[in-house]
């Protein structure tokens, strides 16, 4: 997993509460055999006029002009702000995959659904909980000023606005450690590679028949 330390990025304000994972990535795209390539279908139903199909070329599809990600000034946004209970609904890991693939690195909301929150950390995305008032301030400021960017410092656990306001946020120590070092579950387990190897050596001695090649 890609490590997360410091990030400065353009903010896109998605003024919606209870954004569910079906909205983030609709079910027809789950047939894909990939973990990547979901970006073009992120928020598919909010973003396009027509119904999207897997493997479709999206460049010619009619856009919903009002949708935040379709507005020129938010092109290249990597920090998404939204209202409460972001990521509710189905547990699909395709939701963080789609956000990540689109280019988001940070999601800020007053609250998140549990499974989605977990899935973000597994995929190198940082979900940040700020108070309703702080999120409100970010909405107001980002809508008012074009090119509004936030500075996110994971080790200091702070979000800094262009005018220098600093908000601190909570993050579980273990998860922080994983993100800072780019450790996913696999990365973490592989830190114990020597222990696994010595177990394996022992097993080779006691159950040699399990180590024959399959042809």
């Amino acid at each position: 997993m890609r490590p997360f330390t410091l990030h400065t990025g353009l903010v896109a304000p998605l003024d919606l509460a209870n954004v569910d994972t079906d909205m983030i990535i609709p079910k027809q795209f789950l047939k894909s055999i990939k973990r990547t390539g979901f970006g073009k279908n992120l928020f598919d139903e909010l973003r396009y006029e027509d119904e999207g199909q897997p493997d479709q070329d999206c460049s010619a599809r009619p856009l919903k002009k009002d949708f935040v990600l379709n507005q020129e000034r938010y092109k290249g946004a990597s920090v998404l702000i939204a209202r409460k209970n972001f990521g509710c609904g189905s547990s699909r890991e395709h939701a963080p995959w789609a956000l990540d693939d689109y280019g988001f690195r940070v999601i800020i909301a007053p609250s998140f659904a549990d499974i989605f929150f977990n899935n973000c950390f597994k995929n190198g995305l940082l979900p940040i909980v700020l108070s309703e008032a702080q999120v409100e301030q970010l909405f107001t400021e980002s809508e008012a000023a074009e090119g509004y960017a936030l500075n996110v410092d994971l080790s200091a656990q702070t979000v800094t606005t262009p005018s220098g306001d600093e908000f601190s946020f909570e993050v579980d120590a273990f998860r922080k450690e994983c993100l800072l070092n780019g450790l996913d579950d696999i990365g973490l387990t592989l830190q114990h590679a020597d222990t696994i190897r010595s177990y394996e050596e022992k097993r080779k001695q006691t159950s040699p028949w399990l180590f024959a090649d399959k042809k």
């Binding site: 890991e93 597994k122 579950d185 696999i186 387990t189 592989l190 590679a193 696994i196 394996e200």
Partner: peptide
């Protein structure tokens, strides 16, 4: 995700 974990580490949490 666990399939990948097992492929990569031969272990499961």
């Amino acid at each position: 995700s666990e399939v990948e974990h097992v492929l990569a580490t031969q272990c499961l949490v």
